[in-house]
């Protein structure tokens, strides 16, 4: 079981690196969806001491929402905006990947120092992976210009939070998890619509241009 958890965590880390290194928005959306599915599987595999009902619920909701609904919403927005590539990001794709490798190291160090609640039996790699996912999301919001890639970053943050929740696998967490998921759902829904409208109004979704609104 530990083996599968490790494999999944490595895969999640690799999806993150792909998010950092990919210039095509479509592949970013697919990658973040895949990441969501991986998290769903992780919820099933990682549940210590047999599958509890809440584990299955969480996994199912995760897989359905993140693997199917979100990508569908985002792809729709993508079609409307005719956006294909993230061009001229603030930080280049190669440099982003190198920074990603650096981030892995930092997350690992933080993960080894972070005090965890007693009685938590998570794989030692889960917390670093969750942190890494979170930070990659933040990084994408900071370093990318297109609103859609920023939404992908937001989803990545959400994935990171979910991974954290899985790490603690506390029974009470179910409600919190579901709440967050619902939040994310609403956010993606709203953002999809807003992007659609912004795009129709201004013919582009370059977030950098928002600075023109400052005064």
């Amino acid at each position: 079981m530990d083996f599968w958890v490790n494999c999944l965590v490595v895969l999640i880390a690799m999806t993150n690196l792909r998010l950092l290194g990919s210039s095509r928005v479509v592949s970013c959306v697919h990658t973040v969806a895949f990441q969501g599915v991986l998290l769903g599987v992780l919820a099933i595999v990682g549940a210590s001491g047999g599958l509890a009902a809440h584990g299955i619920v969480l996994a199912a909701v995760n897989i359905v929402l993140k693997g199917l609904v979100f990508p569908w919403l985002l792809m729709r927005a993508l079609r409307e905006t005719h956006l294909r590539r993230e061009v001229e990001p603030a930080i280049g794709f190669g440099a982003s990947m190198l920074l990603g490798v650096l981030l892995i190291g930092i997350c690992l160090w933080i993960g080894s120092r972070l005090p965890l609640p007693v009685g938590v039996q998570a794989s030692p790699l889960l917390v670093p992976a969750a942190l890494f996912t979170l930070m990659v999301g933040l990084f994408m919001i900071v370093a990318r210009r297109k609103a859609l890639t920023q939404v992908v970053g937001y989803l990545s943050i959400e994935n990171g939070i979910t991974a954290f929740g899985l790490g603690f696998a506390l029974k009470e967490a179910l409600l919190v998890e579901l709440g967050i998921l619902l939040d994310a759902f609403m956010a993606v829904f709203v953002m999809g619509i807003i992007i659609f409208h912004i795009s129709r109004e201004f013919d582009h979704i370059d977030a950098g241009e928002l600075s023109a609104l400052k005064d």
């Binding site: 490595v10 880390a13 990947m97 790699l125």
Partner: peptide, 21 residues
Amino acid sequence: VPQLLLAAVACAALAVVLVLR
């Protein structure tokens, strides 16, 4: 191509991270 090779570097770095802990 450099991105592909950087992906290889990232994989290798990830492997290092895994064995170091």
